[in-house]
Computed example of a mutant assay.
Amino acid sequence: MKTKRRKAGIALILFVSIYIIGCGKGGPLDVLETAPVRVEVGYQDVDPILWRDVSNIMLRVTGDNFSPIVDTQSVNTTIFLLKVPIGDSRVFTAFGTDTNGMAYLWGRKDTNIAGGDTTRISIELSPLLGNAGDSILILRDSLPWKLSCTDSILDILGANYTVVPSDSFANFFPNSIKNTIIIPSDQPQEFYDNYRTYATKFNNFVYDGGVMFFSACDKGWNCGNILEAGIVFPSGVTLDTIHHTDTLNIVIGKHPIVTELDTLRGYFASYSWFTDRPPFAQILTVSPDTVERPTLLVYQYGSGLVLLSSQPLEYEYGNGIDNDDIGILLPRILSFLCNNDK
C-alpha cells in the first residue's frame, strides 16, 4: 500500500512539473521572440528653460502580452539599445525628468517591431501634453453651465472631436494613441456615477499612453458630486472638500499653459482642490492661502498624462475673459491638446 501511494505521489509531481515547465512550443512558458531596437531621443526644439531642469530620460515600451520595459539614462546619453518583443503597435514613450522623477517633457512613437535587422526609432521631446492624440473625445452628459465654449474653441482650432455620453461607457473603448479624452466641468450625478463604474477603463487608457484632461469642478448647475460618486483619479489623486476662493496664484510658470501668467482671478475661482497627489506632479496653480492648495496639476501615469483642474473654466470663459481671468486657461489648455503649442 505504501509503495502504491509513493508511486502515485511521484506521478502527480511529474505531471505538475511538466505542466508548469511546458512541453515544447506553445507551452505556458513560451518566451516572446524579441528584436533589437535603437531609440534616439531628440530635444532640439525644446525651450531651454524647460530643459534646464531635466537630468534624466526615461523610456517606457508597452504592448500586448508583455510587461512594460523601462530604462532610464542621464541626458548625456539619449540613445537606448533595447530588446523588444516582436509584434504590432509597440508604444515607445520618453519622459524628460528631474532627479525626483517629475516629468517636464515627453514624446512618443507607435510602431511595429519585426524580426531581423535593428529597428531605428526617433522620438522628439516636447512639453507635456504636446503630443496628445489627434481625435478628441468629449465625455459629457450635459453642457457645463449650459455653455458650449469647449466645442466653440475646438471648432476654431479645427479639431476633430466626438461627444460621448456616459450611458455608452460600457461599449466605449478609446485608443490610447489616437484619442485624447476631455471631461468638462459641471456634470450631472449620473455621469460621475457612470465614470466611477468604469474608472478602471479610463485609468488603463492613460496608463497605456493616453492623455486625459478632467475638469473636476462639480456641484454646478447640473448638481453632480464627484465625492459622492467616489471617484479617484489616476494614481490615487482625490478631490477634497469645497474651498471657494476668488483668486489663484500661479506657482509653476514653466509649462506653456501658464507662461507669462501671474495671479488669476475669477468668481469662485476654485471650487475645491486636489490631495493625495503623486510627488512628481507638476502643480500649476494653487489657492492663495497660508496652506497652498493645488487647483491645476499635470502628472505622468504609466505611459500617459493626466491634467486635472478644479476651476470653473467654462463659466469664467463664457462670461468674458481678461488676461488675469482664470477663463484664459481654457483656450490655452485646449490649444495645447490640439498640438498648437499654446
Score class of each variant (00 low, 15 high):
2 K>Y: 08
4 K>N: 04
5 R>G: 01
6 R>Q: 10
7 K>Q: 10
10 I>A: 12
10 I>H: 12
11 A>N: 07
15 F>W: 01
17 S>Q: 05
19 Y>G: 05
27 G>I: 01
33 E>D: 06
33 E>H: 02
33 E>Q: 08
34 T>W: 02
39 V>S: 06
41 V>Y: 08
42 G>F: 14
49 I>D: 11
50 L>E: 02
57 I>H: 06
60 R>S: 07
65 N>T: 03
70 V>W: 04
74 S>I: 01
79 I>L: 10
85 P>N: 09
89 S>D: 14
91 V>R: 14
97 T>I: 02
102 M>H: 00
110 D>W: 01
118 T>L: 03
121 I>N: 12
126 S>H: 10
134 D>E: 13
139 L>R: 06
142 S>R: 15
143 L>R: 06
146 K>H: 06
153 I>H: 09
161 Y>E: 03
164 V>I: 15
164 V>H: 04
166 S>H: 08
169 F>I: 15
185 S>C: 11
186 D>M: 12
186 D>C: 10
192 Y>I: 00
202 F>T: 11
207 Y>N: 13
217 C>T: 01
219 K>Y: 12
221 W>C: 07
224 G>W: 05
224 G>R: 06
227 L>M: 14
227 L>D: 11
231 I>K: 01
232 V>D: 04
233 F>M: 09
238 T>Y: 13
238 T>I: 11
250 I>F: 05
250 I>C: 13
254 K>E: 13
256 P>G: 07
259 T>N: 14
264 L>K: 10
266 G>I: 04
274 F>M: 06
274 F>I: 02
275 T>D: 15
282 Q>N: 13
283 I>N: 02
287 S>I: 04
287 S>E: 13
289 D>Q: 07
293 R>G: 01
296 L>Q: 11
296 L>I: 07
299 Y>C: 05
309 S>I: 02
318 G>M: 09
320 G>P: 08
321 I>G: 04
321 I>E: 05
322 D>L: 08
323 N>K: 09
323 N>G: 03
325 D>Y: 11
329 L>R: 08
330 L>N: 05
334 L>V: 04
334 L>T: 02
335 S>R: 12
335 S>Y: 00
338 C>D: 10
341 D>W: 13
342 K>Q: 12
